[in-house]
Amino acid sequence: MISIIDYGAGNIKSLQFALEKTGMNSQITTDEVTIKKSDAIILPGVGAFQDAMRALKEQGLISIIKQEVAKGKPLFGICLGMQLLFELSEEDGETEGFGFLTGKVRKISGNVKVPHMGWNNLIKHRNIPLCNNLAPDAFVYFVHSYAADGLDTNTLVASTIYGETIPAIVQQNNIVGMQFHPEKSGATGLQLLANFKEMIR
């Protein structure tokens, strides 16, 4: 069973439905016992970094998630959830994230429309099980205004180009992040979720 952390950051029913399609049972929860019993944790997210960290702190979820990750439990951050994995964000003033990954989240620069909304291709940098059976020209769906910067290149799995290089998939041991929405990315998104399922095993 997978715990989807519910801290008021967007509609997460579509994510739960996509997990069901790949044979994963999940529960939308903030309950400490449920989170500790789960096989993995998903940190979804739509909205502002500062608001998300405040909500997680108020519900006592930051320490619980950190404890479970320290035990080796897989943690999967999606969209804003991926950004929260890093050290800092400059959105609405500097705010500390979980600090699981080296790097800072900053606004997308370059002569492009922000927010970045739409389909972009994935450029793979590492051949790892998380990317098994992905087409060379795989496209996924993004909705974001901020992106990770200054990250450890060893954690970068795939990127996309949108005015600049945007980290799209990161992994460091039991921590995975995807800047796009796999649940809105068709067959490619479902394949990535299936690969995460194999990682949990």
Rank of each mutant, 00 (worst) to 15 (best):
M1Y: 09
I2P: 01
I4E: 01
G8K: 03
G8I: 11
K13I: 13
Q16F: 14
F17E: 10
F17K: 11
L19K: 03
M24C: 14
M24V: 14
N25G: 15
Q27C: 03
Q27S: 12
T29I: 13
E32M: 14
T34W: 08
I35P: 02
K36I: 12
K36D: 05
K36S: 07
D39F: 11
I42G: 03
L43G: 07
L43C: 09
P44C: 04
G45N: 04
F49H: 00
Q50S: 13
A52Y: 04
K57D: 08
E68C: 12
V69I: 04
G72Q: 07
I78W: 08
C79A: 12
C79I: 02
M82S: 07
L84S: 01
F86K: 00
F86T: 01
S89G: 10
E91Q: 14
D92H: 15
D92E: 10
F98H: 03
K104C: 10
R106Q: 13
S109C: 11
S109M: 12
S109G: 10
G110E: 09
G110L: 10
N120G: 05
N120T: 04
N120Q: 01
K124A: 14
R126G: 07
I128W: 01
L134N: 07
P136R: 05
P136D: 15
Y141G: 05
F142L: 02
V143M: 04
A147D: 08
D149K: 12
D149G: 08
L151Q: 02
T155L: 03
L156D: 00
I161A: 09
I161Y: 11
G163V: 12
E164F: 09
E164W: 05
I169T: 02
N173E: 10
V176P: 06
V176H: 07
M178F: 15
E183W: 03
E183I: 11
G186H: 14
L192G: 06
F196G: 05
R201V: 09
